[in-house]
Amino acid sequence: MKREIVLKRREVVARILRDRAGLIVVPGLGAPTWDCTAAGDHPLTFPMWGGMGGTCMIALGIALGQPGRRVLALPGDGDMLMGVGSLATIGAEAPANLAIGVIDNERYGETGMQHTHTGRGVDLPGMAAAAGFKRTATVYTAAELEAALPLLLAEPGPVLVSIKVTTDPVPNVLPPRDGTWLKHRFRQALFGDEAFK
């Protein structure tokens, strides 16, 4: 039986990022990027304005290059479905420091709220588990989100947690748009002026 969806996306993302410290965050294009900006823009966030389907692979490249840091990808469900093959690649590589939190409203939110497959029985955590992810979960309630935070933020990965959120409208909160500047900001946060040598 389908469970009721009650979690608000802005509250979910703000809770996940509340104590982020050195966490690296890659939100997928559209609503997850606006959610992360609403929670507080940060130089160790690389907010996606495009590249649909690539969010988790950018996070993989970062995770492999920075094995001492936790990397959290936050794709929407449409983004994750477009790059669903990357679950196989990430499962095979098995990076311990990579987690994926799918902000799953079962809709293509930027284009008119058309249904995605996650509302029609497609189980992304199940697909991730079948691809060899170490831990997976589906979250419907605040209590389940609290229980899943250690998976997202600390436990050995790869991890995938699908967080079911409502389709309630939220205001757009936009990060800076210039991709080259966002790249430099991120690298400077990691490497200081060495980033430009």
Binding site: G53, I58, I62, A63, G65, G83, T89
Partner: peptide, 20 residues
């Protein structure tokens, strides 16, 4: 890293550069 499709590699190498 073996990929399922080449597009994954383009995104991954963006992350590679971000990671230094």
């Amino acid at each position: 890293v073996a990929l399922t499709t080449e597009e994954e590699g383009v995104a991954m190498l963006a992350g590679t550069w971000l990671a230094g």
